[in-house]
């Protein structure tokens, strides 16, 4: 019997692809849309309540962000956010609660290695790239905006 697989790597990869179960794209998109939408609506409600109490719009946005980050962190600590994430996918990863989750999750996980080299060093393991490229992009966009304003 021939003991080597009689296929090129590409052929094998294509062969495996025909066998792999596809994820249910329609269901995933719908769940992400609904859950993401619910999280955004909660944010809107917080913002509206704040403004209802006479808080200025900019401050209300700030309060909303703080409350949502807290909720994300709190649900992560209760191990509920991971369950929501399993269900909602991008719907709970993309909003700011997901960002909070991506920082709190490694913080919990690496606490066993101590507060400095464990928690401190690993807290931004997941969120780090978002911060690096998010901040860089915002600086570049800000600079371009400033340049355009000079001439218009």
């Amino acid at each position: 019997m021939n003991s080597n697989v009689n296929m090129s790597n590409q052929e094998y990869s294509d062969f495996v692809d025909t066998k792999a179960k596809k994820s249910n794209l329609g269901k995933n998109i719908l769940l992400a849309f609904v859950v993401g939408g619910i999280i955004c609506s909660i944010g809107q409600i917080i913002s509206d309540i704040a403004m209802n109490y006479g808080v200025a719009k900019q401050d209300a946005t700030c309060i909303t962000t703080i409350v949502l980050i807290f909720l994300g962190a709190f649900l992560t600590a209760l191990n509920l956010y991971a369950k929501i994430g399993k269900f909602a996918g991008a719907g709970s990863i993309v909003p700011i609660t997901g960002f909070s989750n991506s920082i709190v999750a490694p913080a919990i996980e690496f606490k066993t290695e101590g507060y400095i080299l464990g928690l401190g060093a690993n807290m931004f393991k997941v969120a780090g790239p978002v911060l690096v490229y998010g901040i860089t992009t915002s600086v570049i966009v800000g600079f371009v905006y400033w340049l355009i304003k000079l001439f218009i």
């Binding site: 179960k21 191990n79 956010y81 991971a82 994430g85 999750a105 490694p106 919990i108 996980e109 997941v126």
Partner: peptide
């Protein structure tokens, strides 16, 4: 999971494979 993948509490989805 800790060594090879994502932190346990991170809310992501497993690939079907």
């Amino acid at each position: 999971e800790r060594q090879f993948r994502m932190p346990l509490e991170h809310g992501n989805q497993m690939s079907t494979t």
